[in-house]
Simulated assay, not measured.
Amino acid sequence: MQMWNTFKTGILLAGLTGLFVVIGGLLGGQFGMIIALVFAVAMNMGAWWFSDKLALKMSGAREVTPEEAPELHEMVANLSLRAEIPKPRVYVIETDTPNAFATGRDPAHGAVAVTTGIERLLTRDELAGVIAHELAHIKHRDTLISSIAASIAGAVTMIADMAMWSMIFSSFSSDDGEESGGLAEMFSGVLMMVLAPIAAMIIQMAISRSREYLADEGGANILGDALPLASALEKLEWAAGRVPMQASPATSHLYIINPLVGGFGNLFRTHPQTEERIARLRAMASRNPMMA
């Protein structure tokens, strides 16, 4: 299952990049494709360097020292050893909403942020399951992958919007003799420009869901027990609709449970259905007696 999710993520990222390049080609031909590719590389580098700082700043996270939060630091340190990654920096978000996220472009620059609400809601074992899930994200470089996907999807939307308006304005200035063909070309182009951002968003959400499944599985393996994380997810899902969190849509995909509750279809969800995640973890525990 882990290999399949990794392979699927690679295919989806390739598809998202390809869609971006195709949009560039429609806008400016071969030169437009080259510009789009260069733009994609530049955005990915920006996401690689700055996504962690932006996520922590936007969430209002505050770094805490081992003296301020000794038990939390000890837990993160012990689980980092089991995950075989450097101990990430530890942050706390002052909010009653129970949640957590990880960020960092690679394991050497990782950070884990938990809310004050999650420390009050979960047992020690359940919190360890959540921390292990976040460490799995860091180990798999998921925040980098998610940032790249979000950057490319956003660029697809921006370029498609530019291309659509360009085509509309150019059609108004065309000769009357070319009106019929120009209108048909404009209609097909506008249709493509409308569908491309939707396709980009669907691919981005699919990547995000795949990485959540991987982090659930990886976190269970780090902890050596799948059931505490399953129990934690059950509590966090229950609390998500009862204690609203002021979170930015730009960072909502990072949290273990999406803090923005809404009636979106499965294609547009940043996270898999929590019930499915819990079922997979419990099935994982039942298959492995050491995790039961």
Rank of each mutant, 00 (worst) to 15 (best):
G104T: 05
G104P: 02
G104D: 03
D106M: 09
P107L: 11
A111W: 00
A111K: 04
A111E: 04
T115M: 00
G117P: 01
G117E: 00
E119Q: 15
E119W: 06
E119F: 07
L121W: 01
L121N: 01
R124W: 15
E126F: 05
L127W: 15
A128F: 07
V130W: 06
A132C: 15
H133D: 08
H133M: 03
E134Q: 11
L135I: 12
A136R: 01
I138Y: 00
R141H: 05
D142P: 04
T143H: 02
I145F: 09
S146A: 10
I152E: 01
A153L: 06
A155I: 00
A155V: 07
V156Q: 05
A160K: 04
D161Y: 14
D161M: 15
M162I: 10
M164E: 11
W165M: 12
S166Q: 12
M167S: 10
F169Y: 14
S170Q: 15
S170D: 12
S171E: 10
S171Q: 13
E178H: 10
E178T: 14
G181R: 00
G182W: 08
L183N: 01
L183R: 07
A184F: 14
F187D: 08
S188E: 13
G189V: 08
M192H: 06
A196W: 02
A196H: 00
I198N: 09
I202P: 05
Q204T: 03
M205D: 07
M205S: 14
A206H: 03
R209E: 11
L214C: 09
